[in-house]
Design a protein around this nucleic acid. Sequence first.
RNA 1: GAGCCGGUAGCUCAGGGGUAGAGCAACGGCCUUUUAAGCCGUGGGUCGUGGGUUCGAUCCCCACCCGGCUCACCA
Length: 497
Amino acid sequence: MSAEGDVRSIRIRELEQLRSLGHDPYAFEEYPTSHLPAEIHERFSELEGTVVSLPGRITSLREMGKASFADITRDGARIQVYIKKDDVGDPAWEIFKLVDIGDIVGVKGEVFKTRTGETSIHVRELAVLAKCFHALPLGKEKEGQRWYGLADVEERYRRRYLDLIANPTSRKLLIARSRIVQETRRYLDARGFLEVETPVLEHEVGGAAARPFITFHNALEIELKLRISLELHLKRLIVGGLDKVYEIGRVFRNEGISTRHNPEFTLLELYQAYAKMEDIQQLVEELVRHVAVEVFDSETITVDGRAVDFSKPWHRIDLLEAIERYAGVSPSAFDDLESAKAALERVGISSEDEDSVGGIIEKLLERFVEPELLEPTFVENYPLETSPLAKTHPANPRLTRRFEGYIGGREICNAFSELNDPIDQRTRMERQAEMLAAGNEEANPVDEDFLYALEIGMPPTGGLGIGMDRLAMILGGADSIRDVILFPTLRPLSPEE
RNA sequence: GAGCCGGUAGCUCAGGGGUAGAGCAACGGCCUUUUAAGCCGUGGGUCGUGGGUUCGAUCCCCACCCGGCUCACCA
C-alpha cells in the first residue's frame, strides 16, 4: 500500500469516526466569520479578550498531549489557535483528535496572546467543516523563510488549488492579475468607455496575423473559428456610433507555447472615435499609472530589478531611427527587398525566409531594439506591409500611424490611428487574401461586411490592444505567462494518471 | 518543430551497475502556552513508460511520454 493511499484511507476512517460521534463535517452549510486573521492581528489591543468566530484551513498542527496549537489560514493570512482539553470538554476534544493538517475547521474563542507573544485564539468551540484526504505540500515557514512547498511547476499549473494553498507568492500574483484587470475596467469606465462583448465564434477571423482554432457547429452544419482578435467587431461598433468602446476578452491563437505565449489569452482592445495615435499614447500612460497606483500602491514598479517610474511620460522613438541606433542599419537599406535582405545578412541573420521589407524591419526590431527598451517606450511608425488595419503615415506612404509600447524589453501594447478609408482597406485585405491563398495560414480573408461597415463611414478613430497577461507579468514580476494564467494550456496526462 | 536539462517516498531533494536515502508530511507512544515544537518508535518507493545490453539495471544504450529553458513560430 502506498503511503499516500494510506493517508487517504486513514482520513476517510477519521471522517467515519467523526460521523459516529455525531459530527458530520459535510452537514455544515455555513460557519460565521466575525473577523479575518489579518484583522485580528491588526486590531489585537481592541479585540483582546473578545470572542471571535473563524472558519479556515488548518495549515500547521503542534500537538502536546492534552493541549495543541494549530494555525488556521484564511484569506491568505494565518492565525494561531490554542485548544486545551479542559477548556473544550471531552466531546470536542474527541473531535479535535480527528483533525489533520489540511482540514477546514471553524473555531470560536477569545483573542489572547501566548507567553511567547503570539496573537492567538483560545478555542472554546470547534467544528470540522471538511476533511482533507491528502497530505498537503505545505511549506514550513519561519521569519519569512520557506523550507518546502510545491515547487514542481507542472504540478503547480495542473493542480492550481494546491499551488494557491501552498505558495503565497502564487496567490498574491494571481490576485494581482485580477486586480490589474479590474482597475483597467474602472479606469476605462470612468472615462466613459462602454464595455461590450462580441462573438468568440466567428465564420472568418481577422484583426491579427495568427492561425485560428477551428470547430464545428452541428445544427448549422458549418465550420466556426475561434476569434484571434477583437478588432473588426469593435470597429463596427464605432461605425454604429458607440464612440468609446472596449472589450476585455479571451482570444485564441493556434501557435506555439512559450514563456510569453499561451494559446488562449486575455486581450484588451479599445477604440475611441475622433482620437488619434497621440491621444491613445496618453491614455496608455495614464492607464498603466492608474493600475500601478491602485494595485501596487506606487507609481514606481520594479521591473527586472529596475525601478520604473510610471508617473513620467514614456519615451518615444521612431522605429527606423531605433533600428539605425541599435542595429546600425540605416533607413535607406529598406528602400527595396534586396537591400533589406542584404542588411539583415550583414547583421548576422539569415534572410532566406524573408519575403517583405516590413517583415525584415520587424525582425530587426525584435532582435536588436526590443531588448534595449527597458524604460517604458513607444516605438512609432510601423511598416504598412505588416500593419494592414492602420492609417497610412502622411509623410511616408510605406509607413503607418502605428506604435507599440514596451516595458522591460517586452511588448505590452499595439495601437494605431485606425484605417477608415474603405477603398484602401479593401486593397490591403485583398493583398492579405492573396497571401492566404498562397499558403500563409496567418493571413486573413477579405471581410466584406467589415468593408461595408467602413463604406457606411467610420470616424477617424484611435485603437489600442493590450495583452493583459503580459501586463500582469511585467507589473507583477512573473517570468512566465503561465504564472499569471490560472490554468495554462498543458498536454493532457495519460488516462491512468 | 529543433537543441539542452529534468522526472527517485505525499512534498522538497540527495544518490548511483549488486533492486535506495534524508528532512518535512504520515502512523503509534509521551507531552496542558508551542511555533521549522520536542523526544522515542514505525510504515511508506513498479526510481516517468516500454524495450535492449548485462549473471544482475533505478543507474549504461534506444524509443516514447510529461515538463522546463533556449531557439523557431508569434505582422
